[in-house]
Each structure stands twice: as structure tokens, then as C-alpha cells.
Design a protein around this nucleic acid. Structure first.
Lengths: 337, 337
DNA sequence: CTGAAAGCGCTAACAA
DNA sequence: TTGTTAGCGCTTTCAG
């Protein structure tokens, strides 16, 4: 069933039917009713390709993501995706995820943009220096960055949590409990969030007049295994840190695991704060976390921003910083020293 | 840059240019060269929407998947996706994943089919009774099922591993080690793989003349947490099982974890075999697994099948059963009784 | 308020 | 071997 046959069926022109269906104001109320009814009965639905070709847009938004456990597989990301797709569904638009090889991500962006496969993109896992953002900005393709980047050159739309603030809160909390030997386990520092959190950590520590043992700074951990390994490294130090901050929940799981395996009492011998929800922790260790509220709402918000961009909003008006909050668990305690 | 301008630029008709670009045999070699060169210089690339509209296909294949850790987030699935997208990339086609709400999955299938958004689908996590497969078969939409279903009514294309054989191997292995009290932790039994593996288990056991304590059969576990919980339940039984088979790697991680946490010596006090790669296991417990070789190749194979369907192949000629293999680890040992 | 006609960018009969 | 012409199914001026 296509527009023409539906129009014939009704004895009207394609134009009128199209207008009725798309809610144009100038159609007669009675006519509209008839059309809507007939469309429903016939199960008519406009062909999106034809529609897209005629209108110059697809009503589809996209995310390009590597099919890896630490990217697509990240439960927090999946939550955000859920929020996005739900929001889009309610406005008759769609979300698609295109798996890309992490090697030549940029090439995939170039292709998607040139092909106009989508009306806009969400750029995830932003880097300190992000060529994807540079590219999209240059060609003026609508996108919102899920996370910021350092020196974009031009303003761009972004959604992020306050990385500096979150770490500050965590450090303050640990300091208040008397900790002075605080370590940090970081994701790869090319990632903007890891970089900001790391810098914030250094700033907060030196602000408190504390030097950091270089062995207490471990980076490049973005999965359970490496998080586990990183924590073991810290445990091997003399003296051991009395507290550890993990900047991402994926390695957080591994890090906490390492402590439990080593028979260390969390919150007593060593305190731990992890950035991000730890739903995945098995052993029921109620970990103190820096929580990013409402991933689903975050997704919905990014959808709003995308739509705003499509409606001509200036990117610099679409920058949103949400505040993380310390979610108390049982893994922070007074320093035993 | 579109076809018309490129044609004008070359002083040829759109037709000739189109033919040259699409490798039709009837164009003059010299002409083709000129076209190809000009296209490259101009950075011309056919608009997929227009192309799709004209040709009636999109060159895009799709997967509809819930954005959940146990679905999209499953590392094995991500591997398969990687294999698919790589295979498609090499033939100038694309893969998209559309996140869907697990509640009304079928509605999403109906929509995608009606909209002709893709040329074919992969249906994952097949159920014993799968309405998605029934629907797609009924409307004759090209798809390959990643996993089988019980009573499809009509033949359909599928790719699967031999669930019965895998479990049989595992049971035989345990029997050979003298085990008689063997338990099984299963995914929800609506899932076809879980059902088949469970049935195979029952068959193998009764074939060996062994009765199964009903408490040794635990289902509905498809993530770490529930796997963990299931194993604790088993440990609480008197007598305990001397061996446990876990039918999926997601709960496998949790199950193994539970044993380690309880201080049980794997392969001594209790033997364990898990279906699927356990890369995720932190503690380096080298778990004996029923391995599904080459997820990436599996993905590539499913792409082949999809293309074959598009070329008119009959679904019943596209059914492939791969054999799993026992991958020896250190978690199976002689029964201590 | 409605319709005819042009056009989105491409492919594919059919002629030449 | 190439060009002309007619669509694919929809939206959107422009008349009426």
C-alpha cells in the first residue's frame, strides 16, 4: 500500500492525503478524518526512503560504536542508548547503532556523513583531541558529543558530567576520613573523561598539600581484567595506598574484586571509591560510588539536543553539564594509619 | 555532488555514468576510466536513499536487539557482530543495530519490515516458540535465525551450534571422571538454546542411568548475579552436587565466582564446565568450557546466508550447525566421593 | 481547502 | 556503446 493507491481508494489526490497524514493545518477536518481512518484500515505507512529522499532527511539518528565489551558492552552506555531510543520512539524517529572497527573510526564518520544516512550523530567516548568532533564540526554535520573534548576550535553541542567536581568530592571525602596516601586507577588518558578526572585528582591532592607517589597513578584500565591487575599492582606497593579512586566502573569491578580476593577489608584496610554504578559487583560489596544520575534521562536529553540542532539551534547553546553525586556505600572508612 | 552534475561535468548522460560506476559490462573501457576518475576527483558517492528507492533495496542489514547487558552487552554477541560488520564492509554493505524495547520486540520487527529499512535481518536469542520467526516467515522477509526454534512450521535459514552434542560431551567428560551428582544452571528455558541444552542434559543423565535431584536444576540465570546466586543455592544442598554445568558464560562468571568466594577448590571439591568462552573471568581460574569456535566467522557466515537469501536462495538450503568442542581447563577433576 | 505537476537522486527499460 | 524516458514513493510549490 502506497500513497497513490490510498489516494485512489479515497478518490482524493496524493497531495491531500499526504497533507492530512502529516498534520498540515489547511485540510478540512472531515477530510482529515476520512484519510486517517482509511490509512489505519489499510495499514498504510509512508515509505521512509521515499520520504527521506523528498524531504532531505531520514528521521533517523545514529551512533557509531566499536562492538567491544568496553564500548558497546558498557552497561551504562546501554542505559543511555535505551533512554535515547525510547525518547526517539515517542516522536516517530529511530535510533541506529552502526558497529565500526575501532581502527578507522573516522572513515566511518566520513561515510555516514557523505551518505546522509542519518540526521545527526552522537559521538561517544570523546578523546582529549578528537578528530571525529573536528571533522563533524568542519562539515557542519549535526552531532552532540557525549563527553567533551579539549580544544575543539569551534563551539559544539555536548553533554557531560562534571568530571572535575566528581573527583573533588571523592578526594574531599577521603581526606575527611584521614586518608593521605590516595591512589587512582584511570582509563586511558586519551579519553577526555579520564584526563579530566586525573587532572582533577592531581589538583585536589596538591591543593591539600599532598604529594602523590607516582606508583599510585595507574592508567589504561577500562575493563575488569585490567582493573583487577591495577589493584594488585597497588597492593604490591610499600607503603600501600590507604585509599583508591577508580575512574570507571568497568575497571572498578575488577579492582574491588582484587581487594576481596586478597582478603582485604574494604573500608577498613583500604577505602575505595568508584566512578559509576557498580550493579555488576557480584559479592554484594556495597561500593561507595560517584554516581551519574539518570543515564536514561541523559539519553533523552541528548535526543532533545539533536532535534534542536536539526531545527537550527546554535551548538553553543546546547552544552549541558550534569553534576555527579557521592553515593555512600561501605567501602570508605577512616584511615587506619 | 550528484549524478546529474557529474554527468554534466563529463558531458555524458546520467545513465552512462551510472552504468560505468556500477560496473555494467556494456560501457566502453575508456569511458569507464574517465568516469571513475572524475568520480574519485569529485568525491562522488551515490546517494543511498535515492539508490534504495530506485532499486528497491538498501544494502543494509540489521539486527534488532534490546540494549541490555545480557543481550547487546554479551561479549560473544559483540564478537559475532564484529564478524558480520567486517564481512559486510568488504562488500560495500552495512550493518545496523536497532535497539528495541524487550517488551514489544515484535512490533519493532513489524515496523522494520513494513518500512523496508533493511534488506534482511538476523534474529538473535531465539525462543523455543518464536513469534518473530513466525512473523518474518509469514511475510517472507529475508532473515537468518541466530539459533533455532522448535516448530517453525515452515523452513527457515538458521545458524546454530549443536547444543545437544555440546552438553553430551560435557556430561560424558564428567561421567568419565566419576561424577554422578551433576547439576545444571540454565538460562531461561524459553530460550531455545537453554531448552535444548537442558533436554540434552536430562537425556544424557538418564542415558547413564542417573536420576537427577530436582534441586540440581536451576534455570533463569543469564547474568553474573543470577549465576552467582544459583551456585550458592547448589552449595546449600545436601548432598552437594559434585559437578556443575553452566549453560551460558554470563552466569558462568558468577557461578565460578561463587565457588571461589566460598573457598571451594575447583576441580577438586566441585567440578565445573561452562558453555562459552570465559575471557571475563578475573581470577584466572582456567575454566573448562564448551567452546563455540570462531564467533567472528559465525558472523561472516550469517552474512553469506543473508546475501544468498537476497539472491533468491531457498531458506531450507541455508541451515548450518557448527560443532562446539570441549576446551580443557583445570576445573574438572575426579569425583572425590 | 484541494489538485496538478515538478522534483528529490538514482536505476532500468527501451531505443538508437 | 550511449542516450531518452519513465519511474521508485513521497513532499511541496503553485494554481485554482
Amino acid at each position: 500500500m502506497n500513497l497513490k493507491s490510498l489516494a485512489n481508494l479515497l478518490g482524493m489526490s496524493k497531495t491531500t492525503v499526504s497533507r492530512a497524514l502529516n498534520g498540515y493545518p489547511e485540510v478540512n477536518g472531515h477530510t482529515r478524518e476520512r484519510v486517517l481512518k482509511a490509512a489505519k484500515e489499510a495499514g498504510y505507512q509512508a515509505n521512509p526512503m521515499a520520504r527521506g529522499l523528498a524531504m532531505g532527511r531520514t528521521n533517523v539518528f545514529g551512533i557509531l560504536y566499536p562492538p567491544l565489551p568496553s564500548d558497546l558492552g558498557d552497561p551504562m552506555f546501554l542505559d543511555v542508548v535505551g533512554g535515547m531510543s525510547e525518547a526517539l520512539e515517542s516522536m516517530k524517529r529511530n535510533l541506529i547503532i552502526a558497529p565500526v572497527s575501532p581502527q578507522n573510526e573516522l572513515a566511518s564518520y566520513v561515510q555516514v556523513v557523505r551518505d546522509r544516512r542519518v540526521d545527526g550523530l552522537v559521538v561517544g567516548r570523546t578523546l582529549v583531541h578528537d578528530e571525529r568532533i573536528a571533522f563533524l564540526s568542519r562539515v557542519r554535520f549535526p552531532f552532540v558529543a557525549h563527553g567533551r573534548t579539549r580544544a575543539p576550535g569551534v563551539p559544539y553541542a555536548w553533554f557531560d558530567y562534571d568530571n572535575a567536581a566528581g573527583i573533588r568530592i571523592a578526594v574531599d571525602c577521603l581526606l575527611a576520613h584521614g586518608h593521605r596516601r590516595i591512589a587512582m586507577i584511570s582509563a586511558p588518558l586519551e579519553l577526555n573523561f579520564a584526563c579530566q578526572r586525573s587532572e582533577s585528582f592531581l589538583t585536589a591532592m596538591s591543593g591539600a598539600g599532598l604529594a602523590i607517589d607516582p606508583r599510585y597513578l595507574i592508567a589504561d584500565t577500562l575493563d575488569r581484567r585490567s582493573g583487577h591487575h591495577a589493584m594488585l599492582q597497588l597492593l604490591a606497593c610499600t607503603p600501600r595506598p590507604s585509599a583508591v579512586i577508580v575512574d570507571n566502573h568497568l575497571s572498578g569491578v575488577g579492582a574491588v574484586r582484587a581487594l576481596l580476593d586478597s582478603g582485604i577489608e574494604l573500608g577498613k584496610e583500604i577505602s575505595v571509591i568508584v566512578w559509576g554504578a557498580m550493579n555488576d559487583t557480584l559479592a554484594g560489596a556495597n561500593v561507595t560510588t560517584i554516581d551519574q544520575p539518570s543515564p536514561r534521562k541523559a539519553g533523552a536529553r541528548m535526543v532533545d539536543m539533536l532535534l534542536a540542532l536539526n531545527n537550527g539551534a546554535a551548538p553553543e547553546t546546547l552544552q549541558e553539564l550534569w553534576q555527579p553525586a557521592l553515593l555512600a556505600g561501605v567501602t570508605v572508612g577512616r584511615c587506619a594509619d
